[in-house]
């Protein structure tokens, strides 16, 4: 299961979320394991059914003013009941000050409390977006990722089939490389983002030459950091009895992290210009998105032609022409 420690979260996002620490630094040893947030107002008032204590608890003006309205003894009991739960972290918004008892008990019971200067609404959305990214399902696959006319194409296939050389060909033709060899794929709600696994830059191995730096060699316009993945192209050696797509009426899909994207099985033969074919795939993908499907267009014309001719034939025969 994915997790991030409160300490790491605090240190990396201190600035972005205007955070400061209220409790002792030792309290920050806990882990955040859930991407959702919770407002614990009802828990403070004594209702613990469905209390999502595993989430980060956000305390805004409503919660704070409720706590301030309680008598000392009630406040103490109410907080204690809540802090018994293993809460990963609490964040007070708008830089509001909290009753001293809350801070005292939090230190006692090892609950980290952070304060943010952002409004509840702003923090809530920013934090959700951030946690969504942190907890997004991800994986790495062996492949090369290129941006061709804005279509994110992930090239896969066995080692030595020519993925890197193909990407180089595309870069030469003005397209952009995102990453070579290992692609990190992150699933967002209903789409995939592909990026590099490291920050070293855009290096690539060319068989027989060694490592090259694509950005240095071709310029900044030849690379990009990340891109939505639109199509997968599997390069494969030509096989005589393999069923390659001939018309393109049926689309094949591949499931990556629960997201379906079209996959094309592309036979590679020596001397074939794969880069050109990949550009054609990209152009065709764009045309399809804009509602024009060449395969459908052609076959519809053929079908109409066949029907018209069959009708004519029938009429002629019936009339003994």
């Amino acid at each position: 299961m994915k997790k991030i420690s409160v300490k790491d979260f605090f240190n990396t996002k201190k600035k972005e979320f205007s955070l400061s620490l209220i409790t002792h630094p030792q309290t920050m040893e806990k882990d955040i394991t859930n991407e959702f947030l919770h407002r614990p107002g009802l828990a403070f008032s004594g209702y613990f059914e469905r209390f999502a204590y595993k989430r980060i608890q956000i305390l805004g003006e409503t919660e704070i003013s409720f706590l301030q309205s309680l008598k000392d003894e009630d406040l103490y009991n109410s907080i204690k009941e809540v802090f018994v739960y293993d809460i990963p972290c609490m964040i007070i918004t708008k830089g509001l000050s909290i009753p001293s008892q809350v801070e005292y008990l939090a230190n006692e019971m090892n609950i980290p409390i952070l304060s943010s200067r952002l409004t509840t609404d702003k923090l809530y959305h920013a934090l959700r977006r951030y946690l969504g990214d942190v907890f997004a399902p991800s994986k790495t696959i062996h492949g090369t990722f290129v941006d061709v006319y804005g279509v994110g194409i992930i090239l896969t296939g066995k080692s030595g089939i020519g993925k890197s050389e193909c990407a180089l060909d595309l870069v030469e033709r003005g397209r952009r490389l995102i990453t070579d060899d290992v692609v990190k794929i992150i699933a967002k709600d209903d789409y995939l983002i592909g990026t590099s696994t490291n920050n070293y830059g855009h290096f690539m191995e060319v068989r027989g030459v060694g490592l090259i730096d694509v950005q240095r060699m071709y310029g900044i316009q030849a690379v990009r950091k990340q891109k939505r993945i639109d199509v997968q192209i599997e390069l494969m050696p030509w096989k005589d009895n393999m069923d390659y797509e001939r018309i393109g009426l049926t689309d094949n899909f591949v499931d990556i992290l629960g997201v379906k994207i079209p996959i094309i099985y592309l036979p590679v033969t020596p001397g074939k210009n794969v880069a050109v074919v990949i550009e054609v795939v990209a152009r065709n993908h764009i045309l399809k998105i804009y509602g024009y499907d060449a395969a459908k267009e052609y076959t519809n014309k053929l079908q109409k032609d066949l029907q018209d001719k069959a009708k004519l034939r029938k009429t002629v025969i019936e009339d003994n022409e």
Binding site: D240, N241, D243, R246, I247, L249, A295, Y298, T299, L302, Q303, L306, Q307, K309, A310
Partner: peptide, 19 residues
Amino acid sequence: NKLGMHARPATMIVKIASK
């Protein structure tokens, strides 16, 4: 066949012939 030699039959013919 009533529909004539449209895309699907054409594909079947080519697939078999290519073997």
